[in-house]
Structure formats: structure tokens, C-alpha cells
């Protein structure tokens, strides 16, 4: 018996190829939305990126996203026990997240920068060592969990880089500090930015997902069934859903406007406070909306879960007593 295992993940040494034709369009749209989000981020901050680091990270992130659709199958994890891609992701965050922490320290703290640098390096080395040690010595394999195949790793690196870029660009950006000074147009620019960011994320992810399915379908059951209805459904339903999400985000902004409009009637003191006129008020709005929603949702899910389990038990008992098991 020669074969003892299905080798679906072949050890192909760096086979690079484009993904399935059906998903190329998602990838192309994803890149387009990456560009749009970049442009609208620039518009939102009045093209004041606060240096080169932010935009550079954004572009590097875009490059990773682009590459994540090319590389297939080659999985460095298969040939070694080292969680290579996990380490790469971790180090990427450690190295490129450092400038943000550094600037934060510079602004907030009166302590010496030397301490920051020394402290950060020691902490980073210790944490990395700890993560690696935990990986090999205990069952807490964070690095292994972070280790994904090449494609997902590039996707994650891309998203991390873009978020680092956005953090840097928006860090204390004077254009966005005082909400009172933001015009309606600026809000809309921000809205388009966030939605195109979402589209970019979703389309790249969708391309990955459907590529996997198409690949499996082709390997296993050529001609047996067609995935076109599924992909079409994704485009149509996904678009409808995205429109609803877009309305949802707009609604959040409207609620925030409403809250800031109503506060003076509640307390002029609060209405004029620094927090109510800065990012904090948006976050308070988010918290006021989402915390109750999610508490209700989680409770609802829990109740439903319990009801379902009971129903299923009942059904199973019925099935077991059924003498003619056939059609379910």
C-alpha cells in the first residue's frame, strides 16, 4: 500500500501562478479599492501625511495584497518545524509598529527617548523569545497559530502594513482633530475612505476564498457541478450587503451628529468639552450603539442555541424510533 495519505498540499518549491480566472476580477477590484482608499485618505487629511513613513507603509501593504493573489501552494511550514511565517508576521509588527510607539512616547511622555529604545528592544526580544519558547515547550503555540500559508501570510502582512500606514498618517493629524471644524464634505471623504478600505479587505479575502473552492471543485469533480451560481450570488448578495453596510456606517455618523447636536440641551458643559468635539465622541457613539446591540445579540444567540439543541435532541429521538431510515 504505497499511498497512506491524500497529499492535497503538495510540496511545490515556489510555484508562482495566477489564481483561478473567476476570481481575478475580485482581485482587480480589490486593488482598485486600495487605490481609492489611499486617495481618499489623502483627501481627508489634506495631503498632509506627516512624513513618508505612513504612505510608504500603505504602498508596501498594497504590494503585499497584490502578491498575496499570486503565490500558491508553496508552504514553507511543511519543510520545517520553525513557525517561519508566524515569526515573520510578528517581527513585522514589532519592527514597523515601533515608530508609532516611539512617536507616542515622544508626545506623551517626558522621559528619555533612550529609555524607550532600550526598553522596547529588550521587551521585543523577550516577547519574541517567550513566544518562541512557548511554541516549542508548551502547548500554547501562538506562533504556530500565526503561521499561515504563504498567501494568507502576505494578506495579513498587507493588512497590518496598511493599518500601520493609516495610524501614522492620522496620528495627531491636525486636519481631523477637531470634529467641529470638519465639514460635511470631509465627513463624506472619510466615509468613502472607510468603505473602500472595507471593499479592499473583502474583495481580497473573497478572492482567496473562492479560489480555494474553485481549485477543490476542479480537482475533485470536473463537470459535476458549476460554481457560477455561487460566485454570482456572492457578487449580487455581497453588493447588496455592502450597500446596507454603507448605510449602516452613514447611520453611525448621523447618530454621532445627532448626539453632538443634542448634548448642548443636556449639558452645555459637556457639549463644549474637548472630548465631545474630538474622536472620543465618535467612539462614545460607537460604544453606545454597539455594546447594547452585541449584548442583545449574544444573549439572543445563546437562547437560540439552547432552543436548537433541545429541538435537535427531540428530532434525533424521533429519527431513532423511525423504522425506515431513508430520506431526511
Amino acid at each position: 500500500m504505497a499511498e497512506t495519505k491524500d497529499d492535497i498540499e503538495n510540496l511545490v518549491p515556489l510555484e508562482i501562478g495566477l489564481q483561478a480566472g473567476e476570481t481575478v476580477i475580485m482581485w482587480g477590484l480589490g486593488i482598485l479599492f486600495w487605490l481609492i482608499s489611499f486617495v481618499f485618505m489623502g483627501l481627508a487629511v489634506g495631503w498632509d501625511f506627516g512624513g513618508f513613513f505612513g504612505p510608504t507603509m500603505y504602498i508596501v501593504g498594497g504590494g503585499f495584497l497584490l502578491a498575496s493573489q499570486f503565490v500558491t501552494r508553496w508552504n514553507p511550514l511543511k519543510t520545517t518545524r520553525m513557525p517561519i511565517t508566524g515569526i515573520v508576521i510578528w517581527l513585522w509588527v514589532v519592527i514597523f509598529g515601533a515608530p508609532i510607539l516611539y512617536w507616542g512616547w515622544e508626545v506623551y511622555s517626558d522621559s528619555s527617548m533612550i529609555w524607550f529604545v532600550v526598553g522596547y528592544i529588550i521587551l521585543a526580544v523577550l516577547t519574541t523569545g517567550g513566544l518562541l519558547a512557548s511554541n516549542f515547550l508548551t502547548s500554547l503555540k501562538i506562533m504556530n497559530w500565526m503561521s499561515q500559508d504563504m498567501r494568507s501570510t502576505l494578506y495579513v502582512l498587507g493588512m497590518i502594513s496598511i493599518i500601520i500606514g493609516i495610524t501614522t498618517v492620522g496620528f495627531n493629524n491636525k486636519a481631523l482633530l477637531d470634529l467641529e471644524e470638519l465639514t460635511w464634505l470631509q465627513w463624506e471623504v472619510l466615509y468613502v475612505f472607510s468603505m473602500s478600505f472595507l471593499f479592499m479587505m473583502e474583495l481580497h479575502n473573497g478572492a482567496h476564498r473562492f479560489n480555494d473552492i474553485i481549485k477543490y471543485a476542479k480537482e475533485r469533480a470536473t463537470g459535476e457541478f458549476s460554481l457560477t451560481p455561487v460566485i454570482n450570488s456572492y457578487y449580487i448578495m455581497g453588493f447588496i450587503l455592502m450597500v446596507i453596510i454603507g448605510f449602516g456606517v452613514q447611520l453611525m455618523l448621523v447618530i454621532n451628529f445627532f448626539i453632538r447636536w443634542i448634548t448642548p440641551y443636556l449639558s452645555e458643559q459637556m457639549a463644549n468639552s474637548v472630548m465631545m468635539n474630538s474622536v472620543y465622541s465618535v467612539v462614545f457613539t460607537v460604544a453606545a450603539i454597539f455594546i447594547p446591540i452585541w449584548i442583545v445579540l449574544i444573549m439572543w444567540m445563546e437562547f437560540k442555541n439552547r432552543r436548537e439543541t433541545a429541538e435537535e435532541d427531540l428530532m434525533r429521538r424521533k429519527v431513532e424510533t423511525d423504522t425506515t431510515p431513508g430520506i431526511y
Partner: peptide, 18 residues
């Protein structure tokens, strides 16, 4: 421009104000 601080003066630490 007059603003109030109703939370805590620690927000002076940040970049929120120049």
C-alpha cells in the same frame, strides 16, 4: 475658542491640543 474639560486633565498629555 473655549472648550471645557469634563473628564480629566490627562487629555492634555495627548496630541488633542497644541
Amino acid at each position: 475658542k473655549v472648550r471645557s474639560i469634563v473628564s480629566t486633565p490627562t487629555i492634555l498629555l495627548g496630541d488633542l491640543i497644541d
